[in-house]
Design a protein around this nucleic acid. Structure first.
Lengths: 129, 129
DNA sequence: TGGTTATATAACTTGACAGTTATATAAGAA
DNA sequence: TTCTTATATAACTGTCAAGTTATATAACCA
């Protein structure tokens, strides 16, 4: 049986996961980005599949690999029992609240952006009419 | 170079860390608890040392192994960039606040315990006097 | 149909690692 | 000093994993 810990032991596989964290990728895309041979990529992806940390979607000849986070979440549970050793609950509360604040600010900025774009569209409409 | 990911790949080493999470342990203690040979334990502990996740304190013939959480914390940073995939910020806030509440309750209980014990001591003092 | 593209797999080599037994080291204890 | 205890290390075996080259599969394309 292949565990998530086995899957993460290889640095190439960790880089693969880092790529898939951004978005799904085809095999050849990862071959190019990681500068490894295609068979090697397929072998590593097989290990990641066996560990259940990626899944595949077929689209004609291409196979889109995407993240399946469950095993990472499971590892996170294990790691949780150690977390108090380096981070107090208040530190973590602090981090989270900062992130939430950033989220809120991003939402506000997006809304302003949208408002601006709508204005521009209106101007264009005016010109065309 | 031995990484924390290499160190965690072996299940016996993960069990060793789980034991050291509770308190420092001698080699033979872990040999008994994990039911492995002494040389094997020493070899695994060497890997954990090389990964920097344990450190040793010598006390006569005994060597007390204890956790050194830095590499786990480093791995936690890596894992953090994936955490949004399975847990919303609000879920985490929820978990943390629950933990903090439990902490507070524990502290209050401890204080009540101490108060009770002090009472008992007073009674004993009374009897003795 | 034949050729091309994308991916997987088989066969192989090499190196690393888990585990074993035997032995070395080094610090008490008698 | 000799014996015992606690741990590390050396030497060895067997398995497994990373990486390679060559080939299979399978879908699209002309």
């Amino acid at each position: 049986m292949t565990t998530i810990y086995d899957a993460l032991a290889d640095p190439t596989r960790r880089r693969m996961l880092d790529l898939l964290r951004e978005r799904p990728r085809s095999v050849n895309e990862m071959v190019d980005l990681l500068e490894i041979s295609q068979p090697l990529a397929s072998k590593h992806l097989k290990v990641l599949r066996e560990a259940g940390v990626v899944q595949v979607r077929q689209d004609a000849q291409r196979r889109w690999y995407e993240l399946r986070p469950a095993p990472l979440a499971e590892m996170d549970v294990w790691l949780s029992s150690y977390r108090h050793l380096w981070e107090s609950r208040y530190d973590r509360l602090d981090d989270l609240l900062k992130e939430l604040q950033e989220d809120t600010q991003n939402i506000l900025q997006d809304e302003q952006q949208n408002a601006l774009q709508e204005d521009t569209h209106k101007e264009n409409d005016d010109e065309q009419s």
